[in-house]
Write a protein that binds this DNA or RNA. Structure first.
Length: 142
DNA sequence: GCCAACGTTGGC
DNA sequence: GCCAACGTTGGC
């Protein structure tokens, strides 16, 4: 019997001076690896192919800039000895028409309780469907 | 198993 | 440059 599996939505933080959305567009697909935080790993392990993820730039930018798709994984991080350390492959899907800034997100009542605001250090953040929809609206994608 | 000290992340 | 929040480490 076919199993009904809903896609989930995520937000992946990256420091753009280290690896940016532009780098992902150039690479097309990259392995999102090297995550060691326990909570972030729980989220990584919950990902599945076809899930979507916003790429968020930390540092001086502090904005969501593009949409990526999970295309493989989770699988054990090949650079780590511990099989609990997992990675996924993501593919650049499309840039946001307009970047959505952290300031906008903080100011918008739709994002009350959002882990991005609640747990500021978390680098892999689940995005509830209604918040995802709102983010796309703010990004002029809807 | 507790907790103080320290390190890291990321916003301000 | 600073600091808040949180995780990790190691002594006890």
């Amino acid at each position: 019997m076919p199993q009904r599996t809903e896609n989930n939505f995520w937000l992946l933080k990256t420091e753009p001076t280290e690896y940016s959305w532009h780098d992902l567009v150039h690479d097309k697909v990259t392995s999102w690896s090297g995550i060691s935080n326990a909570t972030a790993l729980i989220h990584l392990r919950a990902m599945k192919p076809r899930d979507l993820a916003l790429i968020y730039h930390t540092g001086s930018e502090r904005a969501c800039v593009g949409i990526a798709e999970i295309v493989k994984g989770p699988y054990p991080d090949p650079r780590a000895g511990n099989p609990k350390l997992v990675a996924v492959d993501i593919m650049a899907k499309q840039p946001l028409e307009v970047a959505v800034t952290l300031q906008q997100i903080k100011a918008d009542p739709a994002f009350v309780g959002f882990d991005l605001l609640r747990i500021s250090r978390l680098s892999v953040v689940p995005v509830p469907a209604e918040m995802w929809k709102r983010l796309l609206t703010l990004a002029k994608m809807a």
